[in-house]
């Protein structure tokens, strides 16, 4: 299964990422609620990439684990990075005037969540949602 890389440089790109993730989630036969959770998480993360990372890309693909199908989405930017990851994941914390629900909220909506970031080296967030 080949991964698709989608640029994130404007708010129309956020919409395109949502639509592409939705299409993969349907292919992987995620339930409607799980599709909605994954697409919502992808929307939060794509917006973070745009707002805090200064733009970047999303790489999305279908994945399989034995008999289970799922969708994995990776968001990458070369922005300023995050100095305190624990703080950034806390509900209500924001550096950009948002609600501060993006990272922590996205984490709750998916089955697996991984974040790598260093000040000055950008941020990469990977999320996976499996069909039940």
């Amino acid at each position: 299964m080949t991964a698709q890389e989608l640029p994130i440089h404007g708010d129309a790109d956020v919409v395109r990422v949502r639509q592409a993730v939705r299409a993969l989630a349907i292919e992987a036969k995620l339930s409607l609620v799980d599709q909605t959770k994954l697409v919502t998480a992808a929307s939060e993360l794509a917006r973070n990439t745009l707002t805090y990372g200064g733009g970047g890309s999303a790489t999305i693909e279908r994945v399989e684990n034995g008999t289970r199908a799922g969708v994995r989405a990776l968001f990458h930017d070369d922005g300023p990075g995050i100095a305190d990851l624990a703080l950034a994941l806390r509900d209500g914390y924001t550096s950009g005037g948002g609600l501060g629900l993006g990272l922590g909220g996205a984490k709750r909506l998916v089955d697996a969540f991984e974040i790598r970031s260093e000040p000055g080296r950008g941020t990469t967030v990977t999320v996976t949602k499996w069909a039940r």
Binding site: V33, T36, E44, D91, L99
Partner: peptide, 14 residues
């Protein structure tokens, strides 16, 4: 609001 959206919103924390 669609039911799946309501479920997601609550889990998101909104």
């Amino acid at each position: 609001m669609r039911p799946a959206v309501a479920i997601t919103l609550v889990e998101l924390g909104l």
